[in-house]
Design a protein around this nucleic acid. Structure first.
Lengths: 150, 150
DNA sequence: ACGCTTATTGCAATCCGTCGCATCTAGCAC
DNA sequence: GTGCTAGATGCGACGGATTGCAATAAGCGT
């Protein structure tokens, strides 16, 4: 029983079919959630939102799809230093890697883009002769507001 | 029923008693495991090794102790880019932060220390006015040997 | 449009990590 | 050494994430 086909960017369709990955209704629903998410969803939130689009989506399909997307570099997985428990968070991969900073006191998440980070990765690739596919820098500490109140 | 008291470094004894953290038999067993581990144990391995020293050690005590040690900056928690599944790994904290690189093909874990990493952290502290307490840079990619064989 | 093949799914069982609570014990005072 | 008390433990129960397997459906050839 076909559901209304939700709009998925052509680049993803192409990426999938090139390597024989099937575009199922469930994946389409999950992808739509990831594409339209403002930020940092955890698996439970993704499941809930995906079920609204296609109620048949199962928990295990969400986890399997997230793993697939992660393996293919289409999303990033974060744990935000486990400030809010052990869960993991997911966000669409953007062109430039960014650093995540989590305030250990107020829980706020900040992002930061840095040329030095790019330099560091280049150094690793060169000095270790290591081809970087994915990288993640997460920092825990205290934000400006919380430092003042300590 | 007292077990043979295993040797725990004085610095840890001092650190604990200063802040009213009790040195129990179970913690002593777990600490001994961490101190003598060559590297990167996961929770199940720590439990198994600790049980050999003190069979009464329970799973939840291991998790609680790891959390305690992490909170106090005595160990680092890694996920090594989830190459071997979702589990977490633990290692004794050493003075200088190091980068972990995980080969996505052979699974080998490499470490790297870099001044640029230190510079990057300084930049974050300055530009974001953020006090860093803990940081973790993990990289997934392909090591020299595996690059050659692709 | 129809069938075929195999990737993908849903379900149930399982595993891993956490939590509440009653019990125990480390560390201190005497 | 003995007793006291709060911190720590073990146990059982729970929720989140994973996995094996039979059933389903995507995508291709015709």
């Amino acid at each position: 029983m076909p559901l209304p086909q939700t709009e998925i960017p052509g680049r993803l369709q192409a990426y999938f079919s090139e390597r024989g990955i099937r575009m199922t209704q469930q994946r389409r629903a999950i992808l739509q959630v990831m594409e339209t998410a403002s930020k940092h969803l955890d698996a439970a939130q993704i499941l809930r939102k995906a079920k609204k689009i296609d109620p048949s989506v199962d928990r295990s399909t969400v986890y399997r799809t997230l793993k697939l997307l992660k393996r293919n570099g289409l999303i990033d997985e974060l744990d935000l230093m486990h400030i809010h428990g052990e869960g993991h968070y997911y966000e669409r991969k953007v062109n430039r890697d960014h650093i995540h900073m989590a305030c250990l006191r107020c829980g706020k998440i900040m992002e930061f883009v840095s040329d030095i980070f790019e330099n560091l990765k280049q150094q690793v690739e060169k000095d270790c002769r290591f081809k970087i596919m994915v990288s993640r820098l997460e920092i825990g500490g205290y934000c400006t507001a919380c430092r003042a109140q300590q």
